[in-house]
Nucleic acid binder design. Structure first.
Lengths: 231, 231
DNA sequence: GCGCCAATTTGCGCCAGCGCAAATCGCCTG
DNA sequence: CAGGCGATTTGCGCTGGCGCAAATTGGCGC
């Protein structure tokens, strides 16, 4: 049963492609479901496929030789990921884990050169995605190098709500389960420090939070915290 | 006076291209010389060109809104850089400064789509470079997030000697002037701490250093320092 | 060869944030 | 609805490394 082109037609990565072209691209793909906390691919494993996330949220984690983990980024719907091979790598540099139940499209790497040359839009879009990632990553280096923990955590939350925020009556909620530990691994600190910060912010009415859940109620003040050292 | 193809024939970026193709690529380029400490392009400036470094070393620096600087990377001979436009950006994300007198090739951005489609090797090579950079940058995030200052400085020195090391009778020397401040801006610390570390290492015979100059005399012990917390 | 200036070194005090440990809390399961 | 477990909170003490400031050094221009 072939995949319906409607599932990718709306994605910016495939913008400007006609129905026949979309079908042609989909012919090489298959759709796969991953349960929450399942690994889509693992760090160091041979890169055999690249992916597009259709539904869900994915956590990309790198582990150091001594077992410490750092969250490289979260992937949202519509994004292409796992493009290691296109970047000239033989293995995945990180592990991708479904933060919630997910649906992804999978292409075997072998079709990349062909797809890439037949659809320059796709190449350009992938360049753009990778470029944006390089940007983000460098911005994080800047943050880690120059900012205090409080600023970094505030920025991380703001980035998350911007990327995946869902309006609720209390404010904007991060749309998937995220623990203090996760936030610590995004910002280079410990879950203890994150917990203390979130508690203090909750006290001041900037956020409300619970188990694996954070809602920003006063984004403006959080921005102040992220930028300055007041709030 | 047209540029001679021999100046780029040896670069891996242009590997596999024939004489006519090299000439064709060079037709759009011009060669420019930059004096030490001159800026090749500036952060936030409109991205009009992309570059290949023919001779010298370039320091890529990002400045925060409040004026703090972080060295994103050093560019070595043969590398393509300033590819902001190919990545879908309108401005340069950082400032590029000649660490020593440099010679670069410059292409106007306008020719990229054409070159890229005519020479897939070039596209792939650029992908590869950008991918490697993304790798490096993420490795730095890991370091900043999980390692102590001593490890980070040791790793930075090792990366520099690997990239640009020049053998001397005392050991391997970093091939361009680099200050304590520069090292601090690469590792997210202060020149004071870097100075203290280098002094201690010199005491222990691991390096010798002077004004804007560092030579590794015992790389093995530096690797130990970078990995562990002994040495 | 002298003087100037930037780069480097080093001492000292302080504090943000980590490590450790213990207590709670919420959810999910049986 | 009790039990169990992982997530979270919070107290406490310690320290790596920063900020400040002053002294010293090495090289370069004149």
């Amino acid at each position: 049963m072939p995949l319906d082109r409607s599932i990718i037609a709306r994605l910016s990565l495939f913008e400007g492609l006609g129905p026949a072209e979309l079908d042609s691209i989909l012919r090489d793909a298959r759709s796969v479901r991953f349960a929450k906390e399942a690994a889509i691919f693992e760090q160091e494993a041979e890169a055999r496929s690249f992916y597009v996330l259709l539904a869900g949220h994915i956590r990309v984690v790198r582990t150091t030789p001594d077992g410490r983990q750092v969250i490289a980024r979260y992937i949202s719907e519509g994004e292409i990921f796992g493009v290691a091979a296109a970047l000239g790598r033989l293995t995945y540099p990180a592990t991708a884990i479904a933060a919630v139940d997910c649906v992804v499209l999978v292409w075997p790497n072998a079709v990349w050169p062909d797809l890439s040359s037949r659809f320059p839009v796709l190449t350009a879009g992938t360049f753009k995605t990778v470029g944006a990632r390089l940007q983000d990553t460098q911005a994080r280096v800047m943050e880690l190098a120059t900012e205090q923990v409080e600023q970094r955590v505030a920025s991380a939350l703001l980035r998350l709500v911007k990327q995946t925020g869902r309006k609720t009556d209390a404010g904007i909620e991060i749309d998937f389960p995220i623990s203090r530990q996760d936030i610590a691994e995004m910002t280079g600190t410990t879950l203890h420090t994150v917990s203390r910060l979130l508690s203090a912010w909750e006290e001041r009415g900037i956020i409300v939070s619970g188990r694996q859940r954070v809602t920003i109620t006063d984004a403006h003040r959080l921005v102040m915290l992220a930028e300055h050292r007041d709030g």
